[in-house]
């Protein structure tokens, strides 16, 4: 199993680790049984994701994709964050081993789950905006 330097960097020095008190949205995806859980906290100001933090239980790729995903959406608009694909996360990390691609899917889903929670808290139905988040194919 070969990880890129970027993956190892984001694993050993993960960005935006932690929690946000009174977060505007919290999303959690994955499950313990399959070995990956990602929990993402976001703060939203005027449609901009002003802060984002994560906690992850999982392999090196799970930590690195969480870290990279938070970097890619921090300071961006909700619209931009919703456009973030797992592919973009993988590219930003200079690739992932094939068996680890599901971790990038989890990262994308974690962001969507956090935004979905944000909309729900705003009293807005998230479904038409975000759509079905779906289950990780790896786990199910």
């Amino acid at each position: 199993m070969l990880y890129s330097e970027k993956v190892l960097d984001h694993f050993s020095n993960p960005r935006n680790v932690g929690e946000i008190e009174n977060a505007d949205g919290i999303g959690e995806v994955g499950n313990a049984k399959c070995g990956d859980i990602m929990k993402m906290y976001i703060k939203v100001d005027n449609g901009i994701i002003s802060d984002v933090k994560f906690k992850t239980f999982g392999c090196g790729a799970a930590v690195a994709t969480s870290s990279m995903a938070t970097e890619l959406i921090k300071g961006k608009s909700i619209d931009d964050a919703l456009k973030l694909t797992n592919k973009a996360v993988v590219e930003a990390l200079d690739g992932l081993p094939a068996v680890k691609l599901h971790c990038s899917v989890l990262a994308e889903q974690a962001i969507k789950a956090a935004l979905s929670d944000y909309y729900t808290k705003q009293g807005i139905d998230p479904l038409p905006i975000i759509g079905e988040i779906g289950e990780c194919e790896h786990c199910h």
Binding site: S12, G35, D36, F57, G58, C59, G60, A62, V63
Partner: peptide, 14 residues
């Protein structure tokens, strides 16, 4: 409990 093995191995490797 509460940690995943591969992460642990990577950290130990570091």
């Amino acid at each position: 409990e509460g940690v995943e093995g591969e992460s642990l191995l990577l950290m130990l490797d570091i």
